[in-house]
Design a protein around this nucleic acid. Structure first.
Length: 512
RNA sequence: UCCCCGAUAGCUCAAUGGUAGAGCGAGCGGCUGUUAACCGCUAGGUUCUAGGUUCGAGUCCUAGUCGGGGAGCCA
């Protein structure tokens, strides 16, 4: 039966996809895809087709030619798969500017009760239907940008002389902080899912000079925030004959290249997501370099306090505005003449309530943040609110460098001028998106590294191979890790990290 | 681990302690330019669980489960 339909539909017509339609204006073509939305009146059907490359309105007018399939087209349910032929024509009223005047129609599979309807849904429901949520416009766009981002990451390193080294996911011992590792039964032995490939990539670095690993990493942290996943993707370059400044320069070029590529390939997608492109476009070298000691001064400064004060005022102002809007929406939801107007007002009401709740929480937190900043003491790690303050006081991304060694990992290079510090850095993305890179120069002196292992109370034996790298031709070297999902959040302007990965693994979430 | 909020139809949400409703979705019908189309009709409920208060609990109280937001920690 498919064959018969095929012959009728396909005879002499080229198969194409929606993103190619502009090359076929005035011609008959065949499209296949899924019904995104179907509207009909008595004698005309508008079927919005989704084919993975775009959306196209397919118009079926009732006449002799369409008579055999008109009813079938009219009754097509959401997300049913179809093959449609028709004449491509320019049409300003249609989304995308082109539409198909349908001449042939075949239903491949009728979807029954597709769960994600064209109305509002809660996040829990959407996450449980992640496998179907992919088909929604916003999710499709985000994951397309992600695919470009991961390609741009590999491209940068491959084009710049780095060798890709795949590091193991099963790790024999806890590298740092065993509590944050997932343990797995490995033939009766407890092993752990890798939370970094760095130590392994360092070894390869001594063979290849410039290397990187790229893959999933795992953190068993019980954190439930919009910035955390238990499984996320990280790329970790490692460079021989490099000191801290050399690593910073690489990170800078790397970030610029990712920004350039995503902006080049996804301008329209970013606009669809509501991203402020000017914020991305203004990013340029050099990024801000801020030493930990200076960051503390900044946190203690009037500028920081004023920023928070201005924030408080701006947010209170926003709350007032939103409260007015909420009252209007509530009134409209009750009094509007048309049902759809009520609907829209009610939906807006829910949106406003959510925004208000978020703003009120932020306002409630500001005094706390003020205190944290004012009382920040030397020797502590920078907290989330501190990072936000620092990044908001600068136009460009900020490298925070030279942290106290007690809050950092044992392998970071102890600073020669001030041995209380290490030659490390975090990169803070602008607009308060927070930390997207953590990196350092590595300790290359055998004695110092051994000392640090002892200081941290770590067993030496599992690190013998790592110490070997300092026994046989040790060189200054360093690298960093960039979190793919956090970077995507920044580039695409996503509020929550769960949208930045196809299947988010979070505390207590493993389906689908 | 800590703090705040929530759980009512497939979905999104209503319901001064007093007969559980609406819209969407589904089913049926109407409509030749719709844009989350629109209009009419129909079906759809163990109000998260277990206790308690009360003449009476979706609503109040206690505990638990699950979810959301935030803190800490981090990419």
């Amino acid at each position: 039966m498919v064959v018969a339909g095929d012959i009728i539909i396909r005879a002499m017509k080229p198969d194409t996809t929606i993103n190619q339609l502009r090359h076929f204006v005035g011609q008959e073509v065949v499209l296949s895809g899924w019904a995104y939305n179907v509207r009909s009146s008595g004698k005309i059907v508008f079927l919005l087709l989704r084919d993975g490359t775009g959306l196209c309105q397919c118009v079926v007018e009732k006449n002799e030619q369409t008579e055999p399939f008109f009813e079938s087209a009219k009754r097509t349910t959401q997300e049913s798969s179809v093959t449609i032929s028709g004449l491509v024509r320019e049409e300003p009223r249609a989304e995308g500017g082109y539409e198909l005047a349908v001449s042939g129609f075949e239903l491949l599979h009728a979807a029954k009760d597709y769960p994600i309807t064209p109305k509002a849904h809660g996040i829990d429901f959407l996450m449980r239907h992640r496998h179907l949520w992919f088909r929604s416009r916003r999710q499709e766009v985000i994951l397309k940008i992600r695919a470009t981002l991961t390609d741009a990451i590999r491209r940068f390193f491959n084009d710049n002389g780095y060798v890709n080294i795949d590091t193991p996911i099963f790790s024999p011992a806890a590298g740092e902080g065993a509590s944050t590792l997932f343990s797995v039964d490995y033939f009766g032995e407890p092993v752990y899912l890798a939370q970094t490939g760095q130590l392994y990539v360092e070894a390869a670095c001594m063979a290849h000079r410039k290397v990187y690993c790229f893959g999933p990493t795992f953190r068993a942290e019980k954190s439930k925030t919009r910035r955390h996943l238990t499984e996320f993707w990280m790329v970790e370059p490692e460079i021989a004959f490099a000191e801290l400044d050399d690593v910073l320069a690489v990170a800078e070029d790397f970030i610029i290249s990712l920004r350039d590529r995503v902006l080049r390939d996804h301008r329209e997608h970013l606009q669809f997501l509501g991203r402020d492109l000017a914020q991305l476009e203004r990013i340029r070298k050099p990024f801000v370099r801020l030493r930990y000691n200076d960051a503390i001064e900044l946190l203690h400064s009037d500028a920081a306090q004023q920023l928070l004060q201005r924030d408080l005022e701006a947010k209170n102002q926003q709350i007032t505005t939103l409260e007015q809007e909420l009252a209007e929406a509530t009134e409209k939801a009750k009094s509007a003449a048309k049902q759809w107007e009520k609907d829209k007002a009610a939906a807006r009401e829910i949106e406003i309530r959510e925004e208000l709740a978020e703003l009120r929480e932020q306002v409630a937190n500001i005094p706390h943040h003020v205190e944290l900043a004012k009382n920040f003491q030397w020797g502590k790690d920078l907290g989330g609110s501190d990072e936000t303050i620092i990044s908001r006081l600068h136009e460009q991304p900020v490298f925070c460098t030279h942290y106290p060694k007690q809050v950092k990992a044992f392998y970071m290079k102890v600073n020669k001028q001030d041995p209380r510090l290490v030659n490390n850095f975090d990169l803070l993305a602008p607009e308060g998106f927070g930390e997207i890179i953590g990196g350092s120069q590595r300790e290359d002196e055998y004695d110092v590294l051994l000392e640090r292992i002892h200081e941290e109370g770590l067993p030496v034996e599992p690190y013998e191979w790592y110490l070997d790298l300092r026994r046989y031709g040790s060189v200054p070297h360093g690298g960093f890790g960039l979190g793919v999902e956090r970077t995507l959040c920044w580039l695409a302007g996503l509020k929550h990290i769960r949208e930045a990965i196809p299947y988010a693994r979070m505390m207590g979430k493993i389906y689908p």
